[in-house]
């Protein structure tokens, strides 16, 4: 199932993110995925997220696919050169994985193997360009692929609240040119900024699925403001989290904030992408509170 089809059908696309385990026991991750699945159209599987080594995203995607859960295979350029990237993406096609999210990837120094060699043979744009080549039946070096070429729905990311925004838009355009068909965004907490962003990108005619990161605490909000690119949690939200310490412990305030944001942003875009960062069990409640349902089929 290609996302873009859903969007064409006028459906509001809902996705959530899942990180594979550090180890090969996938029961817990699978349980979380099964919990979330009834409420979403697809589940993104991250690729050594934050440069922390984990189980392969491709393997996790295959497991989900086997359980009839629709995966989005996230691919970064940090750990593989163009040979490995192409062969993994062809493998994804073999497993019937339809949706890809193509990213550059965090730098190795941010993760748990700081000494590792950062690859970055390609970047998000050239990666998309490479997939387009594969879809045209050629590899990046121009050699023909055997048989029918694969067909994917290719996504990428963008930071709507980044400052300055222009370099992001500039790259977004390049990504579209390289064949990107949808965008999932970095977490958004500022509706006004997002609105402005959507006005700017309307002309591109590509669906945008807004990113929501569930706030777990004041500390987390502050940390993101300080360290995470493209994210700014406004003061009023921080105040709200502060006031309700009791509830926040249970995650209630964060859930409410997320739901409210979704309601607010829904009219502006074509879908929502939840990043629960381990709080996968809260996803159903957030979606329920925000009043959106994943219309499938």
């Amino acid at each position: 199932m290609h996302f873009t089809e859903l969007t064409k059908m006028g459906k509001f696309v809902i996705t959530s993110e899942l990180g594979p385990p550090k180890g090969f026991h996938i029961e817990k991750a699978l349980h979380e995925a099964e919990l979330v699945w009834p409420h979403v159209h697809a589940i993104n599987v991250t690729d050594n997220q934050s440069s922390v080594m984990r189980l392969s995203g491709l393997a996790m995607c295959k497991v989900l696919k086997d359980k009839n859960i629709e995966p989005v295979f996230q691919v970064t350029c940090r750990d593989r050169n163009r040979l490995a990237l192409q062969s993994d993406i062809l493998s994804a096609a073999l497993f019937g994985i339809d949706n890809l999210l193509l990213l550059t990837g965090d730098h190795t120094t941010l993760g748990d193997h700081k000494d590792a060699k950062p690859v970055f043979d390609l970047d998000s744009v050239s990666l998309a360009y490479m997939v387009k080549h594969l879809e045209e039946g050629k590899d990046l070096a121009g050699n023909a692929l055997d048989g029918e070429p694969p067909k994917f729905c290719k996504g990428a990311v963008v930071s709507p609240c980044a400052e300055p925004l222009e370099p992001q838009l500039f790259k977004m355009e390049k990504k579209i040119k390289a064949g990107i068909q949808f965008f999932q965004t970095q977490a958004v907490y500022e509706a006004d900024k997002f609105e402005k962003f959507m006005k700017r990108v309307k002309e591109f005619g590509v669906p945008v699925y807004v990113g929501i990161v569930v706030l777990k605490s004041v500390g987390m909000a502050r940390f993101m403001n300080e360290n995470v690119a493209g994210i700014n949690v406004p003061d009023n939200i921080i105040e709200e989290l502060k006031k309700d310490k009791e509830k926040t412990k249970s995650g209630q305030t964060g859930i409410e904030i997320s739901a409210r944001l979704i309601k607010e942003l829904k009219p502006l875009c074509q879908g929502v992408h939840l990043m629960p960062l381990g709080w996968d069990d809260k996803v159903p409640e957030i979606l329920k509170l925000s009043g959106i349902i994943a219309e499938k089929g």
Partner: peptide, 15 residues
């Protein structure tokens, strides 16, 4: 660019 990217910024920059 720390990653030597040729096609634009990666989105990892803050301020």
């Amino acid at each position: 660019c720390s990653k030597g990217l040729l096609n634009g910024q990666c989105g990892g920059a803050k301020k």
